[in-house]
């Protein structure tokens, strides 16, 4: 039995036994290589789940739909390791309760799918070498190296060119599981810190503020990248922030559910004198 069939039947039994009220997974998309999210509420609907190497989206963002989890019932969800990282970060930031999530985990390596063992959040909690060692896709890695090799002036020009394309549609914000604020800072207009019209300065402000807000919180799932209609390689900037945080604080976001947010917590042993 392939992994798709295994997870279809598992999802069906989760639903028919009433253990979960909903399973979020993938269904067929508009073209042969695209998948679209499928929300199954019955065992029969679960038979329409598709699971193959094209299922690359991070579905965890759907868990934050307003009101979805307020009844205390459980939801099943298909997740890759980056999605599991997102879940851990969301739990650490009190946006999810661990006992409301049933994980149907899978990994894609060289186009091959493998099922991940464990179903509860606790099974994936703690330092997970598998998750930590997970490399970024080679193409992304190459892009990062190409950017690193640039001089600061060239790099600034690169981002200026990229951000000049931004049309402020906020698709990146919508796709990102970490952008869960009820009101985004960009929507604050008293005072209007970030200019909403899409000119270079406002575009820069928006994208840089978002990168700062994701420092130490990004699971590197690439949802922002895929969502961007004008193809700004947003994950590159987030990957760089992630590396800075890793090097400065030995902090790997999404490793466990009890990680303290790296930029909001402080140690009393900090050598900096401004900390009492």
């Amino acid at each position: 039995m392939g992994i798709q069939e295994q997870y279809r039947s598992e999802a069906a039994s989760l639903l028919s036994s009433g253990e979960v009220k909903l399973v979020i997974g993938f269904g067929a998309g508009s073209t042969a290589d695209r998948r679209r999210p499928l929300f199954a509420r019955t065992g029969e609907e679960a038979n329409r789940f598709v699971l193959d190497a094209s299922c690359i989206a991070n579905l965890s963002t759907y868990l934050l739909t307003e009101g979805l989890l307020s009844d205390g019932k459980k939801v099943g969800i298909f997740l890759k390791p980056d999605g599991i990282r997102s879940i851990n970060i969301l739990i650490a930031e009190a946006q999810l309760k661990p006992d409301q999530v049933v994980i149907l985990g899978y990994a894609i390596e060289n186009g091959q799918l493998t099922a991940l063992e464990g179903r509860s959040v606790a099974d994936f909690n703690g330092v997970n070498e598998k998750i930590r060692s997970l490399a970024l896709p080679p193409a992304v890695q190459q892009d990062i190296e190409r950017l690193e090799a640039m001089s600061p002036v060239e790099r600034f020009q690169f981002w200026q060119d990229q951000f000049s394309k931004c049309i402020k549609c906020y698709a990146c914000r919508q796709a990102c599981p970490m952008c869960y604020c009820r009101r985004c800072i960009v929507d604050v207009n008293q005072p209007q810190w970030v200019n909403t019209s899409s000119h270079t300065l406002g575009n820069f402000e928006w994208n840089i503020v978002r990168a700062f807000h994701l420092a130490g919180r990004c699971a590197a799932c690439g949802a922002c990248d895929r969502a961007c209609p004008v193809n700004i390689p947003l994950r590159l900037i987030n990957a760089r922030m992630g590396r800075e945080v890793r090097e400065a604080f030995d902090y790997f976001a999404g490793e466990s559910t009890d990680q303290k947010p790296v930029l909001a917590s402080f140690s009393k042993d900090d050598p900096e004198t401004f900390i009492l």
């Binding site: 009190a94 946006q95 604020c181 009820r182 917590s265």
Partner: peptide
């Protein structure tokens, strides 16, 4: 209160 997302970052950050 209406816009607080309850992430508790401030709770941890407050010295």
């Amino acid at each position: 209160e209406s816009t607080c997302a309850g992430c508790w970052g401030c709770v941890m950050a407050c010295p």
